[in-house]
Design a protein around this nucleic acid. Structure first.
Length: 577
RNA sequence: UGGGGCGUCGCCAAAUGGUAAGGCAGCGGCCUUUGGAGCCGCCAUUUGUAGGUUCGAGUCCUACCGCCCCAGCCA
């Protein structure tokens, strides 16, 4: 009974931590209360299809979809595809796949800003008729010059007071493709002296002659973000429009357009701080450069902070969702440490990942008193954290591979793995004692000879003697060769973009971000692995089979290491084994 | 030096004006057939600074300091 209470207390505490009542959740909750009846929440995730999604987008995806689920509303998936010159159908499909993989379903609510081009055009005409928009013939340089500066007001365009009729005709001609790109734009007539730059007669439509991935050549004019975003939000019936801090200055324009175009119950924009992660970069532009310049193998390189990269790395959707929920939502600029992301994936994988034994850097061990032809089936637990995952049989023989770092001829204090004369436990199998070491001409250890205690099958000594060290192993005659890729941070500084303003960010690229081991030995059960299953290789970390695997040879990516207090101790002692 | 946003522990992040939650990291210890996991304990006399109001201030007022964003026909 007492135990139960404590357990309940612990659980509720955990839940409280996992669901912080951040300011957006509170705001939604309050807003929904205000609307007398039927107040419901409609959010949206509105990416531009001009790159792959990264962990920063995941924060927004989780925010919008989780809030919708929590308040029994809905979340729209919408492509902000108003700029055909940088958008492609390939990006569209990668984005849909990533959002789906993260575990979210937009149901029927898949939209495109481009679907709204006709009504958007009509709304622009309405604005012209309201004398709140005009066609401007100034060149982009002239517009720039007349915009003023941060401290000085701008000046009115000489085309600002054209008649409604002239504006209508010109705008129609723009749409008809009568002018070259850059020749004319449609502008809102607001205030060239506004201290809010986006309010200085912002451009609403521009001429673009690149074909659009969805509408082809149907249009020669395209709406700008500021015009399209608020209106598509309103047209879709979105109630809450969450975006990052840099759009704060655009909110007056967002509200202005909605008000002038007479939308009732307009959507409300609220800004929150975007995610920054240490030791990497979360900018589509920079990520694209890493891909194009060949610093990584692609958008889904396991070192990339992209959703597809994390997926290939072995991260689970749940671990990413938990991460996003756990870091909170606020307005202050912040950078989450990579260790926090790693914590999330370890936490999930610890309970979910099946265990297996794999030797990354093999060293041969011969158990001299073990019968040569014998093959024993050793029972191993698949996941000590989850009984339901059951057990499996692992073949044990006279010759096995152990981890090279698990044997030391001259062990330091507190090293309780194998060493001359020392006894260790072979995980789930037997206690063995090192009797002898063989070396090659260079003095490298090539073979370790041990004897085993036949009375210790399973790993326990009948006489009750205690053995501190347990190491993992793989039978040499049953082992499968594999290539293993170990990853480290892509950049060796916390913030690659500002650590050294004088150098290119590529100067901070970590030359050791990937290490390839080609001699790894895997226990046979791993060969049956199919699909995206991340395993824990006991004592070594979490690993997932990469798509580069072939029928003959598998390739595995290390997702993350296990917490390693021994390594930490060694580092502190300034020693390396 | 125009406007906007923001300053609470190394990193995140809570706190109707009522006496600074929690997580990550770190550090000690227990336990352990993964040096994993788990468990226990420690880790902000103080909220950018300086004043003020108040019985009482992270919360209110004033001034100052610092960081971020805005001058794309990008989003």
């Amino acid at each position: 009974m007492q135990e139960n209470k404590e357990e309940i207390k612990r659980k509720s505490q955990r839940e409280t931590t996992a669901s912080p009542n951040h300011f957006i959740r509170k705001l939604v909750s309050e807003d929904l209360k205000k609307v007398a009846q039927g107040g419901h929440l409609v959010t949206r995730f509105p990416p531009e299809p001009n790159g792959y999604l990264h962990i920063g987008h995941a924060k927004s995806i989780c925010l919008n979809f989780e809030l919708a689920r929590e308040f029994e509303g809905r979340c729209h998936m919408r492509f902000d595809d108003t700029n055909p010159s940088s958008e492609t159908a390939e990006y569209v499909s990668s984005i849909l796949e990533d959002v789906r993989w993260l575990g979210y379903d937009w149901g029927e609510h898949l939209y495109n800003a481009s679907d709204q081009f006709p009504p958007l055009y009509d709304l622009a005409i309405k604005l012209i008729q309201l004398e709140l928009a005009y066609v401007c013939d100034l060149s982009s340089e002239e517009i720039f010059q007349k915009r003023g500066t941060l401290t000085e007001p701008g000046e009115n365009s000489p085309y600002r007071d054209r008649s409604i009729e002239e504006n209508l005709t010109l705008f129609e001609q723009m749409k008809a493709g009568a002018f070259a790109p850059g020749k004319r734009v449609l502008r809102a007539k607001i205030d060239m002296a506004s201290s809010i730059l986006p309010m200085r007669d912002p451009i609403l439509y521009r001429i673009v002659d690149t074909p659009h991935h969805r509408t082809g050549r149907d249009w020669s004019i395209y709406p700008m973000y500021d015009f399209a975003h608020c209106l598509t939000d309103a047209l879709e019936g979105v109630t809450h429009s969450f975006c990052t801090l840099e759009f704060t200055d655009h909110r007056p324009l967002y509200d202005w357009l909605l008000e002038k175009l007479d939308f009732h119950d307009p959507p409300k924009q609220t800004e929150f701080a975007r995610l920054n992660l240490s030791h990497t970069v979360l900018s589509k532009r920079i990520l694209k450069q890493l891909v194009e310049r060949g610093h990584v193998s692609g958008w889904d390189d396991p070192r990339m902070p992209t959703i597809s990269g994390l997926r290939r790395r072995g991260y689970t959707p749940k671990s990413i969702r938990d991460f996003c929920e756990g870091i909170g939502v606020a307005k202050r600029d912040s950078t989450i440490q990579m260790a926090r992301l790693e914590f999330s994936v370890r936490e999930h994988l610890n309970s979910a990942a099946p265990r297996a034994m794999a030797v990354l850097n093999p060293l041969k061990v011969i158990i001299t008193n073990y019968p040569e032809a014998s093959v024993e089936k050793i029972t191993a637990i698949n996941n000590p954290e989850d009984e339901l995952q059951g057990t499996r049989e692992v073949p044990f023989t006279r010759e096995i591979w152990i981890e090279r770092e698990d044997f030391l001829e001259n062990p330091p204090k507190k090293f309780f793995r194998l060493a001359p004369g020392r006894e260790v436990r072979l995980r789930y199998a037997y206690l063995v004692t090192c009797q002898n070491v063989l070396k090659n001409a260079d003095g490298e250890i090539t073979e370790v000879h041990c004897t085993y205690d036949p009375e210790t099958r399973g790993g326990n000594a009948p006489d009750g003697r205690r053995v501190k060290g347990t190491i993992h192993w793989v039978s040499t005659s049953h082992a499968h060769d594999a290539e293993i890729r170990l990853f480290d941070v892509l950049f060796n500084v916390e913030d690659p973009m500002t650590s050294d303003p004088n150098s290119d960010f590529t100067a901070h690229l970590n030359p050791g971000s990937v290490e390839i081991l080609k001699q790894a030995k895997l226990e046979p059960s791993l060969m049956e692995s199919e699909g995206e299953q991340t395993f824990q290789f006991e004592r070594m970390g979490y690993f997932i089979k990469d798509r580069d695997s072939t029928a003959e040879r598998s390739v595995w990516n290390r997702t993350v290491t296990l917490r390693d207090t021994w390594a930490k101790t060694q580092t502190k002692a300034g020693r390396k084994i």
